[in-house]
Amino acid sequence: MKPTKQLHQHIIDQCKQNNAKAQMQLYGLYCKAMFSVALRMVNDTFVAEEVMQKAFIKAFKKIDTYKNEVAFGAWLKRIVINQSMDELKKKNTDIIPISKEIMTISEEEENWQIEHEITMEDVKKAMQQLKDKYRIILTLYLIEGYDHQEIAEILNITENTSRTQLLRGKNALKEALKCRL
């Protein structure tokens, strides 16, 4: 049985009062989903677990700032993504090079159709092999559902750079998938 929104809010309210039992309940409700987000971002199980733990600590410290304007899961996911980016920066990963080039994306370039023989598992494995700068953009755009404006804010880049990196990431993913066939 899935907990109701009211129950979630009750647990969140308890967390705002620094109730350790409620914090464990909230952790239990969201830990698997947040681990998946972190893993897609950092591409390393150990680091993803560390990211998730740090993100939950930050969330509990800042839970008073949660105003119920967005779903709690979305608020928490943003913290996990930001924590993931911090970890990648520590690793000195070249996430996104600054690019001033302007690219116009044609309809053909926006086509995300893939061959029928390619499975979702093939796509996930191919994405894991990409450079971080491409994997991160593809993950945020395709899997997490962020648009270019949101990606630009998260990564502190321009929307145009987000589009450019997405296009390059898509092309790198296509090449990686061709090698799998």
Rank of each mutant, 00 (worst) to 15 (best):
I57T: 09
C15S: 08
Q25F: 10
K100P: 00
M24R: 12
I57V: 10
I105T: 11
S84D: 02
M127H: 00
K67G: 08
Q53G: 08
G73W: 03
D147H: 13
I102T: 11
V80M: 05
S84G: 07
L130Y: 03
N111W: 02
Q14E: 15
L39Y: 12
H10V: 14
K125M: 07
Q17G: 01
I114K: 12
L177Y: 04
R78S: 11
A172I: 07
K21Q: 13
E87M: 10
L88N: 00
A55L: 09
Q149K: 14
K174H: 09
K170M: 06
Q128H: 12
R135P: 06
I118Y: 06
K77I: 02
N68L: 06
H148W: 12
T93C: 00
S106P: 03
V42C: 03
S36Q: 11
T164W: 05
I154C: 13
A48N: 03
Y27R: 10
I102L: 10
G28C: 11
K21S: 13
E159G: 14
G73Y: 08
K170S: 06
T164F: 09
L7V: 15
I137G: 06
K170E: 00
A172H: 09
Q23A: 12
K90A: 01
K131P: 04
E153W: 06
I102D: 05
Q83W: 00
Y66Q: 04
P97T: 01
D94M: 03
L29R: 14
I95H: 02
I114W: 08
K16C: 09
M41F: 01
L140S: 07
I11D: 13
K16Y: 09
D64F: 02
P97K: 01
K2I: 15
L177N: 02
K67C: 07
E150H: 10
Q6T: 15
Q83H: 00
E121M: 11
M120D: 13
E49W: 00
T4N: 14
Q14P: 03
E69F: 08
K21N: 11
A74H: 09
N111M: 05
A22T: 12
T139Q: 04
M127S: 09
I157W: 08
S36Y: 00
K2W: 13
E101M: 08
K16R: 14
L166Q: 13
I136P: 01
K100H: 14
K32L: 06
A33C: 01
K131M: 03
I118V: 15
G145K: 11
C179Y: 02
L88K: 10
L140M: 15
A71T: 08
K32I: 07
L142R: 14
L181I: 11
W75C: 11
E175W: 01
Y146M: 14
A176V: 06
N19W: 04
K100I: 04
N171D: 10
L167Y: 08
H10C: 12
K32V: 12
E101F: 06
I143V: 11
F56M: 10
M52R: 10
L7Q: 15
K90P: 03
D147C: 09
A22R: 12
I63D: 05
E101L: 09
V42F: 04
Y134R: 03
A71M: 13
L142F: 08
S99N: 13
V70G: 03
T119E: 10
N111S: 11
E144K: 03
E49C: 00
H10L: 15
R78I: 12
T65I: 04
T158P: 07
T4G: 15
E109F: 02
Q83Y: 00
